[in-house]
Amino acid sequence: MDIGVLNGPGLRMERPRVSGHRPANRPRSWGEDYASGLTDTVSAISSDIAAEQTELYDTTSGWGNVMYPVFKPVENFGSFIGNTVGLMSALSPKGMNPKVAEYWQGIGESFRALGSKVVDALGGDGRAAGEITPALASIVVARKIPDGIQLLDWTRKSPRTGGDAAHHVSRNHGSLNLNKPNQGVFYGNAVEVVNDAWRKAKSGDVTPITVGNRDIYVVPRDNSGFAGGAGGQLQNFNHVTIITEKGTNRVVTAYPSGGTPPLPKNYEFPLLGGE
């Protein structure tokens, strides 16, 4: 195979170049490609601004012209984010995490939509003005962080004690308490262990069991804690049970546990039979 395209004309694979000057048409590095692509993006955006500004000045007057410098950058910022993420995604040696790329591209598109709505509203006949608020809201509401990188929300306040979830978990499962009949006790920092387990849960295939207003996740994670409380025998626990408010990532409680979720009370075991 002739690899002249990569290493210069006339160089064959069996004669690899090991010293001397590099050929003039050597492949550019990732950094060079990235910088060049970024420069192209910025210059494309600049020329776009100039062209649109001219058009706007020719066709509109009044507020459109006055507010243009204020809102047009919002749209351009959107283009910038979208294009940059596209570039990074394409040029990154391992490729950017598709979910992260999608997220940032979505943010870029939202800003671009918002900027364009504002410019239309101010420069045109005002019909687009009513769409500005939904466009702005879409940036805040609809751009939910993808599941793969969603973190736990620890801000839930206990209705009984008023403490937040981190305080609640640390108090109930941070150290051995013989007053509790059953108690999973974490090794180390309870919040860090739970966050780590949650990352594993989101990257793996852990689906919750829903009981009433709670979602119960049982996540495999080695050496998370031990069996404490009055009934515990200090057995090692290789799972973390995370209980959230139903359908959300708001933590209610979490504790190290065995691999099975808590069975419903009065569960009728089918193998025991009946009389």
Binding site: N172, G184, N213, I216, V252, T253, Y255, P262
Partner: peptide, 28 residues
């Protein structure tokens, strides 16, 4: 019965002026 870790505690809800039972761990 939900989490098997907490105790069921009797509490009062001042807003609705009624008694409730809550788990002190999973807060069902």
């Amino acid at each position: 019965p939900v989490c098997r870790q907490g105790e069921l505690i009797v509490v009062k809800d001042p807003a609705r002026e009624m008694l409730l039972v809550i788990c002190d761990d999973c807060e069902s």
